[in-house]
């Protein structure tokens, strides 16, 4: 594959890769808590399992945008959710959102 072909077909991250990056961001946020990255799974809930406070989610939102740009807008993603949904939000739902957004941005 030539360089120009690679540019035409940029690599879109897989679910597993996005999970890996988000796990890294969460591990940094949770630094100082008794939780290791190994314990973060697709099923982990941000508030009940990882014990993140809403202000931690603001930091996460910024990191997501810094990593993947304007197309990944966490605040917009959860703005339409009810409070109960936000409290039950899982890492997997966020990974799914990021992957979908990156694919949508790629198509457009």
């Amino acid at each position: 594959m030539t360089t120009s072909e690679q540019a035409m077909e940029p690599h879109l991250p897989t679910e597993q890769e996005v999970l890996g990056e988000i796990t890294g961001m969460l591990a940094a946020l949770l630094d100082g808590y008794d939780l290791t990255p190994a314990e973060i799974t697709m099923q982990s809930r941000f508030t009940d399992d990882l014990e993140l406070e809403s202000i931690d989610l603001v930091t996460l939102a910024e990191q997501l945008q810094a990593r993947w740009g304007e197309q990944v807008n966490f605040a917009e993603f959860i703005a339409d959710m009810e409070l109960d949904e936000i409290i039950c939000l899982t890492v997997g739902q966020l990974v799914g959102y990021v992957v979908t957004r990156l694919r949508t941005a790629e198509r457009s």
């Binding site: 406070e53 809403s54 202000i55 603001v58 605040a75 703005a79 936000i86």
Partner: peptide, 8 residues
């Protein structure tokens, strides 16, 4: 905190 507005 400002999070109450950031997500609403």
């Amino acid at each position: 905190s400002l999070a109450s507005y950031y997500f609403t």
